[in-house]
């Protein structure tokens, strides 16, 4: 039984996709990120991904790069992450952490897992750790009952989708485009094909991310994915105002409830 099963079970029961929103911890400040995440939870995110700001975010486009830089300049420390996760749990939300691997290595894989679990976090998304190199993390996540969300990409072979599915718990993160994070105008046509391939290997829920910024796009993804992941658009809204975060969340929450066949 995965920690995230209840989230996806409830959404499935309601006949819709889950809305998964990303925000870097510490952006623009530690307290500011707690406020924004609370707003995201209150106005319709079924799950939030708390990002760990990293100096060298190779999978991120300009929006999240700049947000991470700003958080680090404002003095963000890895230990602050757990307070942010705790505040999501305290607000009744569900949180996983998304992080590049080096900060976890330095903190200590086992210690990171222990502190994340203690803070009420449910799992970890690892964009630059593939299962092949993840023996320590697999052991630590088993020990502390945390979900581990690995990524699959349009370029993944069947063998790799199979390996990644078997190594994951909670959900699989399908990157819908070949490219870095960042809001895009059009939902990639690679995504439905990738999700179809993934489903031949696993019954695990599939979240689709990279590029979503509107309810209409969310509705397109909701037609074939179990979770719609939105990142950069939340960062942009957070820079604007709490009202903008609320409006974006509500628009996306409506989108995941009104699945339409992709154009």
């Amino acid at each position: 039984m995965s920690r995230l099963d209840p989230v996806f079970d409830r959404c499935r029961a309601e006949g819709r996709a889950a809305l998964i929103g990303y925000l870097p911890a510490g952006y623009p400040t530690v307290e500011g990120s707690k406020d924004t995440l609370r707003t995201m939870v209150d106005s319709g995110c079924d799950l939030v991904e708390v990002g760990l700001p990293f100096s060298d975010p190779v999978m991120d486009g300009p929006t999240i790069q700049v947000a991470a830089e700003q958080a680090l300049r404002a003095g963000f420390r890895v230990r602050d992450l757990f307070g942010v996760v705790e505040s999501v749990a305290a607000a009744g939300g569900k949180a996983v952490v998304m992080t590049y691997w080096n900060p976890v290595l330095r903190y200590g894989v086992e210690r990171f897992a222990r502190d994340l679990a203690a803070a009420g976090g449910l799992g970890l998304i690892t964009p630059d750790l593939v299962p092949d190199e993840a023996a320590d993390w697999i052991a630590a996540s088993d020990e502390h009952d945390l979900d581990r969300i690995f990524l699959v990409a349009p370029s993944s072979t069947e063998e790799r989708i199979d390996l990644t599915s078997k190594s994951s718990r909670g959900f699989l993160y399908a990157t819908s485009v070949m490219g870095v994070t960042g809001a895009r105008d059009v939902v990639s046509n690679l995504a439905p094909e990738l999700v179809k391939r993934v489903r031949e290997h696993t019954d695990m829920p599939v979240g689709v991310g990279l590029g979503v910024r509107s309810g209409a796009q969310a509705a397109e993804l909701a037609a074939f994915a179990d979770g719609v992941i939105v990142g950069s658009a939340f960062v942009t809204a957070a820079a604007d105002s709490p009202a903008a975060v609320r409006a974006l969340t509500e628009d996306l929450a409506t989108g995941v409830r009104s699945a339409v066949a992709p154009a």
Binding site: M59, P127, D128, L151, S155, S156, T157, R160, M178
Partner: peptide
């Protein structure tokens, strides 16, 4: 065969690029 020199090396990188390095 997976690129390890003792504990060093390997592939700590996004899945999207694994096919290319393969």
């Amino acid at each position: 065969e997976r690129g390890h020199f003792g504990p060093w090396g390997g592939r700590y990188m996004p899945e999207a690029l694994i096919a290319a390095v393969d």
